[in-house]
């Protein structure tokens, strides 16, 4: 649940999402669920020339499995906390597999 927990803190931030088909979309992250499906608002497609069919899309729901990268605003990430959260997650996982 670490990634879900993490992305939840990024709601209402502007993120850029690169899909596995190379489309890059910048928009405001409205919500995310445990499958890391993503809802974006006020979107803007980078390289719009290549994907004219997206020119009128204002918001979208992206299935989590098609996301390649999510580019985040660095200032919104608490690295120390994230490290600790990762440690906890790792400890949880170890606990679970045993």
């Amino acid at each position: 649940m670490l990634f879900f927990s993490f992305f939840k803190t990024l709601t209402n931030q502007t993120v850029t999402i690169e899909l596995k088909n190379d489309i890059r979309i910048r928009g405001i992250l409205k919500s995310v669920d445990q499958y890391l499906n993503i809802k974006l608002d006020d979107i803007e497609v980078l390289d719009l020339d290549k994907y004219p069919h997206l020119s009128s899309v204002k918001s979208m729901f992206i299935r989590g499995s098609v996301v390649r990268y999510v580019m985040l605003p660095r200032s919104e990430v608490d690295v120390g906390l994230l490290e600790d959260a990762t440690r906890r997650e790792a400890a949880n996982q170890v606990g679970k597999t045993r």
Partner: peptide, 18 residues
């Protein structure tokens, strides 16, 4: 807290944005 540690603490630190 154990499931959702980052989010819970982060929203406590930065003021719950949601």
């Amino acid at each position: 807290l154990s499931e959702d540690f980052y989010y819970q603490v982060y929203s406590q630190i930065r003021g719950a944005p949601r």
